[in-house]
């Protein structure tokens, strides 16, 4: 794909995220997230990576620099515009669960019911189709507590994708998954990466996934930010901090 046809969905320019972690220092980040590409944030501090992820997702405002998400500066949006803007960004968290009081189908339907004025039947049909696409083999009326961790991850992915977002943000999507389940999840994520920009943290638990799908790996530590074009460039890096991080996994 030539550079002229690539659509930039997120652009960070000398940006520093806001964070409650006062003991960590946050170096400036300048990067771009592009359509049909997967960017993975890696580094030694989970909370630091999360602060950058939330900033790139347009959830938190930068304390310095500029971040444009889907062509808009988040700090300029009012409440209604912010809600509409958020509906274009899917969010999946491996650590935060689904709504336990609602059954599986309702969990998936919820963003669509809230943002789009469709009937219950149309919304349910759309959710069922997506669940079938994601190969979900469980009763749609089961509650999240009755499902296993992989099924819950499938549901969380379905909920993030129901509005067909152009940007998908994933916070440790492989959390709490066994080796086989991680492989199946990676296949699903690879499939849905093709039509949107994906930004995630937590891919180092499953290097094969990054090897196959990561177009950009951003290493963030307290001292520096390094941007690599893919897994090969990342593992071949001679940077001492990168080597230490890789040796842990």
């Amino acid at each position: 794909m030539s550079n002229s046809t690539v659509k930039t969905l997120v652009a960070a320019d000398e940006a520093i995220p806001s964070s409650t972690e006062k003991h960590l220092s946050f170096p400036v980040l300048s990067c771009q997230l592009q359509d049909s590409e997967l960017t993975c944030l890696v580094g030694p501090h989970r909370s630091q990576l999360r602060a950058y992820l939330l900033m790139l997702a347009g959830i938190s405002k930068p304390v310095q620099g500029k971040v444009e998400v889907l062509g808009q500066q988040v700090c300029q949006l009012d409440q209604a515009a912010w809600q509409k803007f958020r509906s274009q960004i899917g969010y999946l968290s491996g650590t935060s669960p689904l709504l336990s009081a609602q059954h599986a189908l309702m969990n998936v339907m919820l963003p669509l019911l809230y943002h789009v004025n469709l009937s219950f039947r149309e919304t349910a049909d759309k959710a069922r189709t997506l669940l079938a696409e994601l190969d979900c083999h469980f009763e749609a009326t089961m509650f999240p507590a009755q499902l296993n961790s992989y099924q819950r991850a499938q549901l969380a992915l379905a909920r993030a994708l129901i509005l067909d977002p152009s940007l998908l943000i994933m916070d440790v999507p492989f959390n709490d998954l066994g080796a086989k389940e991680r492989h199946k999840m990676a296949e699903l994520l690879g499939k849905y990466k093709s039509s949107r920009a994906v930004c995630m943290i937590g891919g180092l638990q499953y290097p094969r996934f990054l090897q196959q799908h990561a177009n950009q790996i951003i290493f963030i530590s307290e001292q520096k930010v390094l941007i690599f074009k893919g897994w090969k460039a990342f593992v071949e890096s001679e940077d001492a901090e990168v080597q230490i991080l890789l040796s842990v996994f």
Binding site: Y91, P97, Y114, R159
Partner: peptide, 25 residues
């Protein structure tokens, strides 16, 4: 108790990130 447990479990935060207003929903 319901809202407290929902918040403790982290069920509210992802919904906010999906643009669902806590006050509204």
């Amino acid at each position: 108790v319901d809202l407290g447990n929902t918040k403790i479990a982290g069920e509210i935060e992802p919904l906010q990130y999906l643009g669902i207003n806590v006050d509204d929903y």
